[in-house]
């Protein structure tokens, strides 16, 4: 009688899920599909994760890890000090590129997944990245609140346009996308 192989841990399930999401899209993600990928039964998957939403949440967080690692790499390659407009442009470009390279995961991160997890304590801080991490000079809330609005809008522009391009709803070159971003930044974001 053959015994089913055991997995190394939850991370193996998440890695397999990321692979499926990358190749086949988030829609393809199911316990059965992950199990097939790993050569185990669906029930085995549930020894490592609570449910499919648990997997999706981990995929979403892994997506943010990828996105923000890329953003940070690009920003840290710039000559300091980096002005706010430059930061915004760099981030916008990184988000756009990420969306094109990770269509399905990106859509999930900022749309379907956001609906599911935006109140989840572990996921919540990864949203509103422009206001949380860029607009705010270090210090107390009173110092950065008035700046919120342009950054909120910029984030919506960046994510929505990136999503629409990735999904083929609109067709924009990277340059055309950045032209839109620059148009907004030059009018609304102080250096």
């Amino acid at each position: 009688m053959s015994r089913e192989r055991s997995l190394c841990g939850k991370e193996e399930v998440i890695k397999a899920a990321m692979g499926i999401a990358d190749r086949e899209g988030m829609e393809a993600l199911s316990a059965r599909r992950i199990a097939k990928e790993l050569g185990v039964s669906s029930m085995t998957i549930y020894n490592y994760v609570k449910n499919l939403n648990d997997v999706k949440k981990r995929v979403l967080i892994a997506g943010f890890d990828r996105l923000y690692s890329g953003v940070y790499q690009s920003l840290s390659a710039l000559e300091p000090p980096v002005g706010r407009r430059t930061m915004c442009r760099t981030m916008a470009l990184e988000v756009f590129r990420f969306a094109q390279a990770n269509r399905s995961i990106f859509s999930f991160m900022f749309f379907d997944g956001r609906n599911l997890f935006h109140e989840d304590a572990e996921v919540r801080p990864f949203y509103a990245f422009m206001t949380r991490f860029v607009s705010r000079p270090r210090g107390h809330v009173a110092g950065w609140r008035p700046d919120d609005m342009p950054f909120n809008l910029l984030e919506i522009i960046i994510t929505t346009m990136s999503y629409q391009c990735a999904e083929g709803v609109i067709k924009l070159t990277e340059q055309a996308f950045m032209d839109h971003v620059n148009f907004f930044i030059e009018r609304c974001v102080d250096e």
């Binding site: 923000y68 300091p80 930061m87 801080p125 990864f126 949380r132 705010r136 000079p137 270090r138």
Partner: peptide, 18 residues
């Protein structure tokens, strides 16, 4: 992944604050 994500966010924030 969560820890790296948090760290990236904070480092971006540090760059933003100069």
């Amino acid at each position: 992944a969560t820890i790296r994500g948090i760290c990236s966010c904070l480092k971006i924030s540090s760059l933003a604050s100069g």
